[in-house]
Design a protein around this nucleic acid. Structure first.
Length: 916
DNA sequence: GCAAGGTC
């Protein structure tokens, strides 16, 4: 329940009327106060926002997660006195994963990873955070999202919304936008709440899903193949592919190859020296250098003919060395790598520790502009006490801080700066802290000032230049030893004067290749090409090091490893620029269009998947190029490996499409104790269709032969039975079709594919043929529909009756009865299906299904089904997925014996209880 | 055993 502001004002005049009004529409707020759940992206933000909103008058209590506290305080929300509950998540609450058995690398062909369902689920680490949200939101009327004002923040916001709406579907949702966490910003944000932006969130979902599908498909494929092709070298290697790690590797390989392919060129140039006493001033040639020796020699000889130098001009002008801009993550990483000798990954680890101890501000920021509200003088004051930089800090206070401003703002975090003084840190922590402090003081100080002298001379028509520098004031350099700027002396020259050089020489040289990339260079390239984020650059670099794609030369320069260069060259030879940055850039452009609402996320997903799937298939077709390239660099002969649809040959063999879910395949598997076999759907646990083979089967193997009687390429299975355990005259070894055409075999095995599954062993679970939707997860499929039709056919093994598509059937196999809730509850009038047998009947099953939760028709792509009542549009214009709402009906799997917490009956939960 | 993105 939420009231418009003018409505609230009116109500405030008639408090009694308002209270009635409030109670009428909200059963959450019995006390007459609004309860508002506020959720930030991290605990630190929640704490600070709560502090600003409450003016410090708040109570802290524990949530289920020890890292994410709950802050409670009173506040006037939209004109109403309200109880504010502020808590947080820790970044993403949910993440995409493959379901169930698909997490096994051999469960399916890697090609299938482009299409099989993925679910957005809460990792175990974050279950406690989710539990806190679920508990708190039950008693609230309003949810305010305070996550970071960036793309990921918007997506995290929707993850919070999804979790909260699951238990409180009527909650009103608002988005607060903060540019920084200061009191004015927080106040401004809460008084200008808007709706969350689904477009932005969708873009992140698309990116996440693509990263998983593409990354996993290529990683599994190339790992499994190359381990077999190079068993001596790569048997235990994980050969990953990722949309960020591969371009990062590509940069290293490209620079290495540039150097390898570099052809030096000879050049020649003329130098002039003028030495008086100990000062030797060198004049450089205005032509810089010539690549023609004869021509250079002609000009040199001309100078020699009349070597007297005439001073053409003497220019003196002020020269500044600019103080640094406020520190962002990338600059910290680069500076630490270059100047402190600490690599980016280690730097971020140290910075995070310093942040968690309160010594520095949040170290993952793209902002290099100090917000106006930040009291810089107070922060500088903290450092006046220091022996090394205290005097400098005092001088800043005396003159007033003059921050140099950069041009970037992530609208979320301020530049990295010290927040507390300490002098007790040791080693690398001290180095990083000192760097942050000195950088902070430096950028609040003044540019270094100097005077530059430029002298131009002419010798018989050829012009030369020399520079001098006189430093007037070091200013920021006094506190910032990481920058160098030194005086460069020059003689006093006057325009029009002539002098005789003490040296005139022609020197030769060779052009030299560029240097190998340092870590700072690599980070700059990643930043320039949009590979990764400021928070992840260091991780991608670490990944390609740990996978042995690259190594370090002299502990400083990146060189590709044999594996890394072999992979890049292999894909290049196929014509796929997998290691080039523009693939990611193209996706980024599409993501931007999704954010702007000019391109549909489904279209982007479909296009990108089609593109990468095509590359994947073509890769498998010419994968020998990868073998050859790697063989060359690994100096190992590739082991012959069949090239016929490799992505399939390295996985388990499919027997046929699962007759229940009709999406994934039936495969043959050994039981965990290795004693006996079963045939199961690879969609487990989404699809639980399983056929247990009798103990008399001592060996089973899917054959390459297909059944010539059945259509659809059903694979035969080769069985070995216990000797003489079969019928008289039945062979102990037999290859046959289990699809139904071989009735004797199916009878022996008690397998009947015309039914969802059959129980062939009395000692094993038989009723597993139920498709479920994980209650903690949201399922997303590409091109295929999540199997749901079994809900209308909870179909125990006894259910042999053919059912039409529209019929709802209970667990006994009977047509379910349509009933209506008659009790005076929130669900009064709502229809549901139940078992048609009398309540007193002992064999009555526990089937329960809301009529408006019925599965959709099975035809047509999912995005064409928006007219179905199960797809509904919420207040924020988002399309909600009905599958999640239906998940609670799935207790019918595995016996469904959990009791409702309300009526104590089985077959439904408290939330769906018809007696509500 | 897989990605990249948050965060602790």
């Amino acid at each position: 329940m939420f009231l418009k502001k003018n409505e609230i004002n009116l109500c405030s005049l008639f408090k009694n009327v308002y209270r009635i009004h409030l109670r009428k529409y909200s059963n959450k707020e019995v006390s007459g106060r609004m309860r508002v759940l506020n959720v930030a992206e991290k605990n630190d933000a929640a704490k600070n926002i709560a502090g600003h909103l409450s003016g410090g008058n708040l109570q802290r209590r524990e949530g289920f997660s020890k890292f994410n506290k709950i802050y409670e305080f009173n506040h006037t929300f939209q004109g109403l006195p309200s109880t504010m509950i502020m808590t947080s998540v820790s970044g993403h609450l949910l993440g995409y994963e493959f379901q169930g058995s698909y997490r096994s690398w051999t469960s399916c062909s890697p090609l299938e990873l482009f299409h099989i369902p993925v679910v957005k689920e809460c990792p175990n680490d974050f279950i406690n955070i989710k539990k806190t949200l679920v508990r708190e939101v039950r008693s609230c009327n309003v949810l305010v999202i305070w996550t970071d004002a960036d793309r990921e923040g918007e997506n995290i916001g929707f993850e919070i919304i999804d979790v909260c709406r699951e238990v409180n579907p009527r909650i009103q949702v608002y988005r607060a936008i903060l540019s920084e966490i200061t009191r004015p910003s927080v106040q401004r944000a809460i008084s200008s709440l808007g709706p969350p932006n689904k477009n932005i969130s969708d873009a992140v979902d698309v990116r996440s899903e693509l990263d998983l599908r593409i990354g996993a498909a290529f990683t599994r494929y190339q790992t499994m193949r190359l381990q077999k092709v190079f068993p001596e070298v790569l048997a235990k290697s994980l050969i990953s592919y990722g949309s960020c790690q591969f371009p990062t590797l590509g940069f290293v390989v490209e620079r290495y190859k540039d150097i390898q392919n570099f052809i030096p060129e000879n050049f020649w140039k003329i130098k002039v020296h003028h030495k008086i006493e100990n000062l030797d001033v060198e004049f450089s040639w205005q032509r810089v250098r010539l690549f023609d020796e004869v021509l250079c020699n002609v000009l040199y000889e001309r100078c020699q003919e009349n070597p007297s130098a005439l001073v053409l001009t003497v220019t003196k002008k002020p020269k500044s060395k600019w103080r640094p801009v406020p520190l962002d993550t990338i600059e910290l990483e680069k500076a630490a790598s270059r100047k402190l000798g600490i690599n980016a990954k280690e730097t971020m680890k140290i910075a995070e520790k310093l942040y968690s101890q309160g010594f520095i501000s949040y170290p993952r920021t793209e902002t290099n502009i100090f917000p106006k509200e930040l009291n810089l003088s107070n922060l500088v004051q903290l450092h006046v006490q220091d022996n090394n930089w205290g005097d400098f800090a005092q001088s800043i206070l005396n003159n007033g801080p003059t921050p140099r401003q950069g041009k970037k703002s992530d609208q979320a975090h301020p530049p990295i700066h010290p927040t507390k003084y300490t002098h007790v840190l040791q080693d690398r922590e001290r180095k990083v802290y000192e760097y942050v402090v000195r950088h902070f003081l430096a950028c609040l100080s003044k540019d270094a000032e100097g005077e530059e002298t430029i002298v131009k001379i002419e010798i018989n028509g050829e012009k030369f230049i020399a520079n001098g520098l006189r430093i007037i004031a070091l200013n920021y350099l006094e506190v910032y030893p990481y920058d160098k700027w030194s005086n460069k002396q020059i003689h006093n020259y006057n325009q029009g004067q002539s002098f005789m050089p003490t040296g005139l020489e022609m020197v030769d040289g060779q052009t030299s290749p560029p240097n190998l990339l340092t870590e700072a260079d690599l980070i700059s390239l990643m930043d320039k090409h949009g590979i990764g984020t400021d928070a992840t650059h260091a991780e991608h670099i670490e990944t390609i090091k740990s996978r042995l794609y690259v190594g370090l030369e002299n502990n400083k320069y990146f060189v590709p490893g044999e594996l890394g260069i072999g992979l890049v060259e292999g894909y290049d030879n196929m014509g796929f620029e997998m290691s080039k940055p523009h693939l990611r850039a193209e996706l980024e452009a599409d993501l931007k269009k999704i954010c702007e609402g000019t391109k549909s996320p489904l279209v982007v997903l479909r296009e990108q998947i089609a593109k990468y799937k095509d590359v994947f298939i073509k890769t498998t077709e010419q994968v020998e190029k990868l073998d050859q390239s790697l063989g060359k660099y690994l100096r190992t002969q590739p082991v012959a490996f069949q090239n016929n649809a490799q992505h399939e040959s390295m996985t388990v063999k499919n027997i046929r499409k699962c007759p229940v879910c009709k999406q994934t395949n039936l495969v043959l598997k050994k039981k965990q104790n290795n004693q006996g076999f079963f045939i199961t759907c690879t969609g487990f646990p989404t699809c639980r269709n399983t056929y247990w083979l009798p103990p008399s089967v001592i060996s089973a193997q899917v054959s390459d032969n297909v059944c010539f009687q059945c259509s659809g390429g059903i694979k035969l299975v080769k069985f070995q039975f216990n000797a003489r355990s079969m019928r008289p005259h039945y062979p102990d070894t037999y290859e046959g079709c289990i699809n139904g055409c071989d009735s004797t075999l199916c009878e022996i095995l008690q397998v009947n594919m015309s039914r969802p599954s059959s129980s062939s062993s009395s000692t094993l679970p038989s009723n597993r043929n139920v498709v479920t939707t994980n209650q903690n997860s949201r399922t997303r499929e590409n091109n295929v529909r999540l199997p749901t039709n079994n809900l209308s056919r909870p179909g125990s093994s006894q259910n042999t009756r053919p059912l039409n598509n529209d019929q709802v059937c209970c667990q006994c196999g009977n047509a379910a009865k349509l009933l209506t809730v008659t009790r005076e509850t929130a669900n009064k009038g709502r229809q549901f299906y139940g078992c048609p047998k009398p309540i007193s009947a002992t064999d009555r099953c526990t089937f329960f299904l809301w009529a408006d939760d019925q599965p959709m028709p099975t035809a047509g792509p999912p995005n064409t089904q928006f007219n179905n009542r199960n797809y509904y549009q919420n207040n924020n214009g988002q399309i909600n997925n009905p599958y999640r709402a239906r998940a609670v009906n799935n207790q019918s799997n595995s016996g469904g014996q959990r009791k409702c917490g309300h009526c104590k009956q089985t077959g439904h939960t408290r939330r769906n209880c018809p007696q509500n």
